[in-house]
Design a protein around this nucleic acid. Structure first.
Length: 491
RNA sequence: CGGGGCGUGGCGCAACGGUAGCGCACGUGCUUUGGGAGUACGAGGUUGCGGGUUCGAAUCCCGCCGCCCCGACCA
């Protein structure tokens, strides 16, 4: 029972979702504020979650033929300004280094907001022939975007991410690559983080500055707001032309290669929190959870303590030898921790629930006598006695089932909160009364899109891919619509 | 950048002209431990910074700096 005013109590979601989010991030010790406005300290538990999704995505990136590289933090002003639409899009958000070595610099250096221009400048020397293509690179790095308003993980001035940059001989190859990047994000979101996403195409207003088009995966948070979970850009020949990258093709013609770039950031830690968390705190998908099962010993006397320790010991050994099979076929042992701290059991239950650990095993004198432990599931606190000698063998399946269960729960939530609307009045009412995704016909005009956003606060997140043509009349101005767009209020 | 609020031990607050106190957290001992333990003792603050008024400033005045909330950009 959580006492009001207890130091680690958190705001209820229904009371104030943003406050709930902040409480979870701070009290589960995922992150702290930093001395620099808008920047965050990622603490060990939060960083472990990031590392898990980072490593999973890195495997996808490598499996699809990309190699990791590193490019510098600084981008000379002249380079950043080479692609006109790109400069215009990023200028307001760029942080500049104007002084160094005690002197003003001849040329200012941008702290990279993203690396397209720098990469284009460098790879022009690497690309001479169609034989040098495709060039498939990926960077894991930090970038800085001077945001007016920041939120831990979701939007920080500096953030960690991955940016893939590729160059191709043909347009079709680049188009396919954009889809490859998007599919990697879908897989990490759905199969690893248990967050269902919808693939789609950004509107002209929302696409990446300098891109031909932008694809994205979009997820729904538990407060009914949308969150972009990864973007993949078709750059066409825009940056290649600006940097004058040319290669000699099979037909002995000089051509500009077709580029793509795609990115996935620490924002996804925030998405994981907001897609699954509840009033007790985090709910982590087993694939990501730094601790998948926590063992809480319960004892009164020294004799009890010794008996419990004795009963746990063989279990610990068995868990170290356990093998859980991951989506890509790899196996790894169940991640567990025994909490021997000098705290009461109740304190520890709350502590680990706040941190989203999928299973807790309580082992007390009564259990030792029965050679069992009480296994408690985080999402519903259901309790089940499990023989200690079977636990290590059973946990991998239980973790798999748990992973499936929270994904299924998130899919059901998303579906329950996706509305098909045709009339503008209904649209406004639904957004206010039951926030979520709204599929509605849209004429495709940018000015109309902006007006809808001004009127309602909702934006077009994407025009979903994988949907067949569905002619209709634009919900705002009645002009013809080929396919419905996905609207939502968004982070 | 415009509007509003706030800066006091790690966190949350009180003291509002007489030199700083409470709760939680923290340390040690004892008793405890199946849903956020009890008790005793203890440690911790040049009150955001600078200036002014005053015999005396956390408190009043001026100027900075920073933070939070609300509106215009964004993974």
């Amino acid at each position: 029972m959580a006492k009001a005013g207890f130091v680690t109590s958190i705001t209820r979601q229904s009371e104030d979702f943003p406050a709930w989010y902040n409480d979870v991030v701070r009290k589960a010790e995922l992150a702290d504020y930093s001395p620099v406005r808008g920047c965050m300290i990622i603490r060990p538990y939060g960083y472990a979650i990031w590392e898990s999704m980072r490593d999973e995505l890195d495997r996808h990136i490598k499996r699809t033929g990309h190699q990791n590289v590193y490019f510098p933090l600084f981008v000379p002003r002249s380079l950043l300004e080479k692609e006109a639409e790109h400069v215009e899009g990023f200028n307001p958000q760029v942080a500049w280094v104007t002084h160094a070595g005690g002197e003003e610099l001849n040329e200012w250096l941008a702290i990279r907001p993203t690396s397209e221009t720098l990469i284009a400048e460098v790879v022009k020397d690497w690309i001479q022939s169609y034989r040098d293509l495709p060039l498939l690179m990926n960077l894991w790095n930090n970038v800085v975007r001077w945001e007016l308003r920041t939120r831990l993980f979701l939007r920080t001035t500096e953030f960690l991410w991955q940016e893939a940059h590729t160059f191709h001989a043909t347009e079709q190859e680049a188009v396919d690559e954009v889809a490859t990047g998007l599919e990697a994000y879908r897989s990490v979101a759905e199969d690893w983080l248990a967050i269902p996403v919808i693939k789609g195409r950004k509107t002209e207003n929302e696409k990446f500055p300098g891109a031909v088009y932008t694809l994205a995966v979009e997820a729904l948070m538990r407060d009914g707001k949308a969150l972009q979970a990864g973007t993949s850009h078709m750059l066409g020949q825009n940056f290649a032309r600006a940097a004058n990258i040319e290669f000699l093709d099979r037909d002995n013609e000089r051509k500009n290669p077709h580029g793509t770039s795609w990115g996935f950031s620490t924002r996804m830690v925030g998405a994981t929190i907001m897609a699954h968390g509840d009033d007790s705190g985090l709910v982590l998908p087993p694939n990501v959870a730094p601790v998948q099962v926590v063992i809480v010993p319960i004892f009164r006397s020294d004799e009890d303590r010794t008996a419990v320790a004795g009963a746990i010991k063989p279990l610990e050994a068995a868990l170290r030898d356990s093998r859980r099979t991951l989506p890509d076929g790899r196996t790894e042992p169940v991640r567990f921790q025994v909490d021997w701290r000098e705290e009461t059991p109740g304190f520890k239950y709350n502590h680990w629930e706040l941190r989203g650990v999928p299973f807790r095993l309580e082992v007390g004198p009564r259990d030792v006598a029965a050679e069992q432990g009480m296994l408690v599931k985080r999402i519903d606190r259901s309790k089940e006695p499990v023989p200690l000698d079977r636990l290590a063998a059973e946990l991998p399946d239980r973790l798999d089932a748990y992973q499936r269960e929270i994904f299924g729960r998130a899919v059901a939530f998303r579906d329950d909160n996706t509305h098909r609307i045709d009339e503008y009045d209904d649209f406004k009412r639904v957004l206010d009364e039951q926030p979520g995704f709204v599929l509605a016909p849209w004429c495709g005009d940018s000015a109309c899109e902006k007006q809808i956003s001004t009127d309602t606060g909702a934006t077009i997140r994407i025009v979903p891919l994988d949907q067949s043509d569905e002619p209709g009349a634009c919900l705002r101005d009645g002009r013809p619509s080929r396919q419905p767009a996905l609207f939502a209020r968004a982070y």
